[in-house]
């Protein structure tokens, strides 16, 4: 299961079946739109799941940048419309393009595709998926789960010791 903090302070827990649903939806989006890579990430930039070629692309960095992209343009959204952020962002390159779509307040979809793919198809299919995922997220929203089950006291002690070893001063 995956867990991340949502805007209202509650944590969404992705069961294995819901995680699989998301993964399958991303696969379907990738296949139908002919995109190179599709990522579902949270608004903090953590990649929850992805489908596609990840050899040349750093998924963590791309997800953080996509979340940052919404953050950077939020000031513009606020000035022109008073809204928190734009719903979609699109960047066109010479060979590859990236389309970003927010899913509710706390998640986003990132689609990387090359110039042979029509933007309209990516846009329509991503919009469709965002609505589907919003429904799924609404069902999953539940009371906060504590982190203590996953990160017990022994883990915390070992982590503290590992810090000195790996992040020591050279």
């Amino acid at each position: 299961m995956e867990m991340s903090q949502s805007k209202n302070g509650k944590k969404i827990v992705f069961s294995e079946s819901s995680f699989n649903k998301i993964a399958q939806s991303l696969q379907a989006l990738k296949k139908r739109s002919n995109a190179a890579l599709c990522i579902f990430a949270d608004a903090n930039g953590y990649a929850v799941s992805f489908s596609g070629e990840a050899k040349e692309i750093d998924i963590s960095s791309l997800s953080a940048l996509a979340a940052g992209d919404f953050a950077a343009t939020s000031e513009m959204a606020r000035i022109i419309s008073g809204e928190d952020k734009f719903r979609y962002l699109y960047h066109e390159g010479k060979e590859k393009n990236v389309y970003l779509c927010s899913v509710g307040d706390d998640y986003l979809i990132i689609v990387v595709f090359d110039k042979s793919v029509a933007l309209g198809i990516v846009r329509a299919m991503t919009h469709h998926l965002s609505l589907k995922l919003e429904d799924l997220l609404a069902k999953l929203r539940q009371e906060a789960e504590t982190a203590s089950d996953f990160l017990d006291s022994q883990f915390r002690e070992l982590l503290s010791a590992e810090l000195d070893k790996s992040f020591g001063v050279k």
């Binding site: 953590y46 960095s61 953080a64 940052g68 953050a71 883990f155 982590l159 810090l163 790996s166 992040f167």
Partner: peptide, 22 residues
Amino acid sequence: TLYFDFLQVELGRIKGKKPRFH
């Protein structure tokens, strides 16, 4: 800085779990 800098660092697995820091 335009809007942020980002660096991911991590530690080795501890009790099978990998801690990462963004």
